[in-house]
Design a protein around this nucleic acid. Structure first.
Lengths: 138, 138
DNA sequence: ATAGATGCAAAGAGTTTGCATAGGT
DNA sequence: ACCTATGCAAACTCTTTGCATCTAT
């Protein structure tokens, strides 16, 4: 039941803690490989699972994509996905108490809110492209 | 771009429209096979995709599960997943306008809210084990 | 008769697991 | 030394696709 400290585990944890946004297993792999080149995807999955069980990170899943993971240390927050560039951003505001929305007899322990729309880099879906800066993130 | 009316398409559409809650592809298959026994999973996927494109149904994805689909006709609503029995319920209340939560420069087009807690069939997560009634749902 | 829809099976993509070995304690 | 964690590859699961056949129009 030990928990050893390995280079790959540290790298994976560090990448997720530092991300500031939810990362997919593939993104975690790529980022952590900068530190530990030989890192394998299987190890990412195993550690992500372990970190989830340990409560250090939490899973976020948005329609369409595979699940992403982020630090559980981030204070309560929500997500915003741009419908154009598909990037996911953290939203630190919260509508507040939502316990009253559930049906009678139901107990609300927590909630997850996702906003969809255009991020500041992907303005109005208006007219065809052509002008302006097209800021995309890989 | 014809759209033929086949028995399987009708069955799939009917199942999703009548469900009242989001269904997984597998659930759609099983329910629709009551009507069209020979129905295949591939056809469910093809039709679910077509119905999504047509805007007749919408996808809902919760952390951990594969995506579920539900009628797009349901008026705006949200979801509640019981952390104990894992069933997903519809919640017809809505916190209202959330456009103000996004960062400056972001445009909110729609939102999705998921509540987690105990449903009325899975009461209090009692402290110490030992006594009390345990209500389980499959 | 024509072209879209279906069933089946093979192909893909993402995730998990078995096993021999590297490496933390 | 002991035993967990890793890497690799095979195994699985879920979803998509190719193809011959069926069928709505």
């Amino acid at each position: 039941m030990e928990q050893r400290s390995t280079r790959q585990r540290s790298a994976i944890r560090a990448v997720i803690e530092a991300a500031g946004r939810p990362l997919s297993p593939q993104e975690v792999l790529e980022a952590a490989q900068l530190d530990v080149p030989a890192l394998s995807l299987a190890t990412v999955y195993r550690n992500v699972k372990a970190l989830l069980d340990a409560g250090e990170i939490s899973a976020v899943s948005l329609p369409g994509d595979s699940p992403r993971y982020e630090s559980a240390r981030h204070e309560h927050h929500h997500h915003f996905q741009c419908t154009h560039c598909l990037r996911v951003f953290d939203v630190h505001n919260c509508p507040g108490d939502l316990a009253g929305l559930a049906p009678a007899g139901f107990t609300v322990e927590r909630h997850e809110l996702t906003l969809y729309g255009r991020c500041s880099d992907c303005p109005a879906p208006k007219r065809a492209a052509g002008k302006g800066k097209k800021a995309h993130a890989h």
